[in-house]
Amino acid sequence: MRRALLVVLAGGLLLPVAACDNAKKSTAAPAVSVAPQPSLPPLPDYSVDTQQHCAQLQAVYSGELRDFGTAMGKLVSLREAKQTADAEKAETDAAGKLKAAGAKVRQDTATARDPDFQAAGETSAAKFEQSATDRKYFDRVKTLTDLNNTLQPQMAQWLTPVSSFCQSAS
């Protein structure tokens, strides 16, 4: 019995070795080693420039957008007082303030060194100008409660393209 067990073990150990010896020899050429490619130059760092442009955009928040909020408050007050003619003038004024905010965003981001930040500024500016033109936002705001509930989310939507850069540049 021991002899049979030894034969099985020996056969099990020798079989893989024999299989390796019987394998066909490869005639393929040895692999050519390729010299590593030189690394790509580092990406430009736009953080300081972007931070400076974001600081310029703060003037939009405290200037044009504050003026827009004030104009919207006036518009809503006139609508609630049912002063339609004055409300229409106030809506035109608010749309002008919104368009001015878009123009300021475009101006402040146009000279940025980061092309992605420039594109984000263009996108934000276009959003402001589109809302000033189509006035769908103005139609949704009929009361001060509407204004309070919609203004902050709407501002975020308009500013999202540039605000993501300004948050990361801080």
Rank of each mutant, 00 (worst) to 15 (best):
F165V: 00
D139I: 11
Q83H: 12
A95T: 07
T92G: 07
A35V: 11
L14D: 08
A19F: 07
S131D: 15
A120P: 09
G69A: 14
V105R: 05
E64D: 14
D139M: 10
R113P: 00
T109K: 01
A10W: 06
S33E: 13
F138Y: 04
L151H: 03
A4Y: 09
E122Y: 07
Q52T: 14
T50K: 06
T160I: 05
M1D: 15
R66I: 13
S47T: 15
P44M: 03
L159W: 02
P115G: 03
A103E: 11
Q154N: 08
D116H: 07
G11W: 08
E88N: 11
V7P: 03
R2W: 11
F165Q: 00
A31F: 08
D139H: 12
D139P: 02
A126G: 06
Y137M: 01
V105G: 04
A100E: 10
Q152R: 06
V34G: 03
L78K: 07
A125W: 04
A169M: 01
A95P: 08
K142G: 08
T109F: 02
M1H: 13
Q154P: 01
C54S: 07
D67P: 03
Q52F: 12
N149I: 00
A94W: 08
A28E: 14
L15Q: 03
G12I: 05
T84D: 15
Q167C: 03
T143F: 02
L13K: 05
V34Y: 04
T84R: 15
A120S: 13
P115A: 07
N148V: 04
R106E: 10
K97E: 05
D108N: 15
A71H: 02
A71C: 06
Q130H: 12
P30F: 11
Q152V: 14
L57H: 01
P153T: 03
P161S: 09
A29E: 15
G63W: 01
D114S: 11
Y137K: 00
C54Q: 05
L159Q: 04
A23H: 10
G73W: 03
L43C: 00
T123V: 08
K82P: 00
L6D: 04
S33D: 12
L6K: 10
A87V: 10
A169P: 02
E129K: 09
Q167P: 04
V8P: 00
M1F: 12
D45Q: 07
E122T: 15
S77A: 15
A59C: 04
D139W: 04
T160W: 00
K127E: 09
K136V: 10
E129N: 15
A95C: 09
T160C: 01
Q51D: 13
